[in-house]
Design a binder for these strands. Structure first.
Lengths: 205, 205, 205, 205
DNA sequence: AACTAAACGAGACGGTACGTCCTGTCTTACG
DNA sequence: CGTAAGACAGGACGTACCGTCTCGTTTAGTT
């Protein structure tokens, strides 16, 4: 994920692959220890046993580095068939909450989102590295629910996409807001209540 | 909102009230111009025509100052009776989206939330200054809907509180996620679709 | 000697005089320990117990700092009446050689002269801080010799100035070249031989 | 002059002779453009169209390289018979002044001398590459003057050597000090005045 | 009207991190 | 094995802010 030079002819000494992974691991460790705002690239470099130049050769700055360091954590999310739409939703909500409960994601996610409000390339990086990548869960879940007959098929691809976007924003937004803004745990009880609301709507609560 | 000294004997020159408002205005202006991360307290002081000491006498640091400067913007939210629960929800969603579209809130809100993940007093300040203060909208809206017969009464106060919390996280989280994380506009069409989902649930979409 | 801001109204906290002297002393100590090329301003600041900013607020860079730190050492030169022109010359030559034998002058003098070849303000600083200030020795010595009848009076002030310049360049240049370029000690024997050459010329050797 | 490896078996690809001269020329060009302190070996390598490794294989560092690059310039000095000792001295002084007026010598000579104060091998390199090599001029000039009967013969070789050292330091030192420390031109008038002083001594001025 | 005590502007202070530059070494592929 | 290319660890650079401090100067409310 670090920016590569034009992939023409690799002349000179090649970049160390070990450095890449060491830097990303060091970044996550530093996030845990220091949080986003007190994390410094000099410290990350030291932790990784790497010179600052090596780090700056690969990433433009703190934001880009942190996005890459954190993005991979969201790939843990999976959607095993739990038998019903409600169980699937509840399951993924609790997985997502668990990831957001980690100190490295907690401190980093909102920070890079904040930075991204004034930095379009960073916004794009977040979108492709995190948002779009996890949207698969919604698509998969809806397909499974449709196969079970719990939801109607959606023949219009455009409408299906918009619906997936909406659902993703609602689910992810609710969990993020609960844990990071309201500062309350998204525990089992909350996941159940949220799932009921999502499936049945306000009237059903 | 700036921290006052123990209100014992006000001896010596009193603090300038003009300085307070000048500082908060300068903070919002600096947020617009520079964004959160490039805002510096020295610059805010200069813009406000105030010495740095004056600023630090009132606020502990950047985070506290920014929370105070931004919190007031959310007080613009109101809930006029638009005739139906759906119209009320859609209205408040669009108001909230409009506030989040301002450059000063956009850049500041997620930044202070990120800082708050490692700073309990700041978390509390956000909760009381912003979150709890706006939760009134949910309570009011539900009461009105109950009066209209659109929603059942909720006799249990505890359950009502939990439901309000949940709904607030879902609504606010969805709008925040849509605009700041996904980076898409929460426009009229989206507000309508979100309202339908919130009221009728997934099955109804 | 550090550059002062326009001496109008001293507003704000005044500069620490202690910092000035601590920095200059630290500079000389660092020159002794490290030599000119390995001296770093960060290290000088640390030795002086001062922040780098404090140092840069007063001096534009390494060269200016070192000139000021070293210039004062040349003020030790004096010209007591030793009874004859030859004795006076020999005395001042040996004093000058002793100063140039110190590690801090040895490493610093030629270095700043080298830098000055591409930096007119620095050249001027060296001229006024060191060269012109010590030229007094030549003027004084010649006056004394004239009083003794060893040298003719020089009625033309312009010619006297040019002669003083020439003599100064010859004396200082010879000692500097002997010690720093040829790398030989300007000891008593050499001082005597040089004095004889200066007074009597090549023919007399 | 670049350090050669033990002259055993020249196995493998031989070193490029063209590289040596290209590097020395590039060094002189860089000295003219940048001066000593801003000259970097990376830049010299680039100018010479050579890799840094090639450069480091031949010279230990900046100082050694610069001494070699500059030393050759002093070989231009010659001592044609100008008919009298005075004319010979004045001629060589003006030649030497002309060489010191070049930007590459001006900036480099004092810099390497300064470095040499803390680096014995470098000091030796300067002595053999520059100082001792040019001392021939003094020896030759004195011999010619003796042949003309302007100076007495010096039968004692040791004394002759010491006298040559002294004269060299006086002449070279005066020109260097005049041009680089005092920052004044060693022009024709100055050369004439200096020559008179050197030949006749202070009393004769 | 004079005194007192805190707030005020200005800006220097000791620090920390920045992102860049250069050094001297190394690791590739090529000749 | 020499070479061009360029990545590497290390370390200094000069700048920007931080949050604190020390000045001299207001500005209220006592005395």
């Amino acid at each position: 994920m670090p920016s590569r030079p034009p992939a023409s002819r690799p002349s000179g000494r090649p970049r160390s692959a070990a450095a890449d992974t060491a830097i990303l691991e060091a970044t996550r460790a530093a996030l845990v220890d220091l949080g986003w705002s007190r994390l410094t690239l000099g410290d990350v470099a030291t932790r990784a046993g790497v010179a600052k130049t090596t780090l700056y050769r690969r990433w433009a700055g703190k934001n880009e580095l942190v996005v890459d360091a954190v993005a991979v954590l969201f790939d843990e999310l999976e959607l095993p068939d739990r038998g019903s739409l409600a169980a699937d939703v509840e399951g993924v909500v609790r997985q997502f909450a668990a990831i957001l409960d980690r100190p490295e994601t907690k401190t980093a996610l909102m920070a890079v989102v904040a930075e991204a409000t004034r930095d379009a390339p960073l916004r794009e990086r977040i979108r492709t590295s995190i948002v779009e990548r996890q949207k698969r869960l919604v698509v998969e879940g809806r397909a499974r629910a449709a196969a079970r007959g719990e939801l109607p098929d959606e023949p219009d691809a455009g409408a299906a996409g918009r619906a997936a976007d909406l659902i993703f924003d609602v689910v992810a937004g609710a969990v993020v807001h609960r844990t990071l803004v309201s500062g309350q745990p998204a525990d089992a009880e909350w996941a159940r209540a949220f799932t009921r609301l999502l499936l049945d709507g306000l009237a059903g609560v």
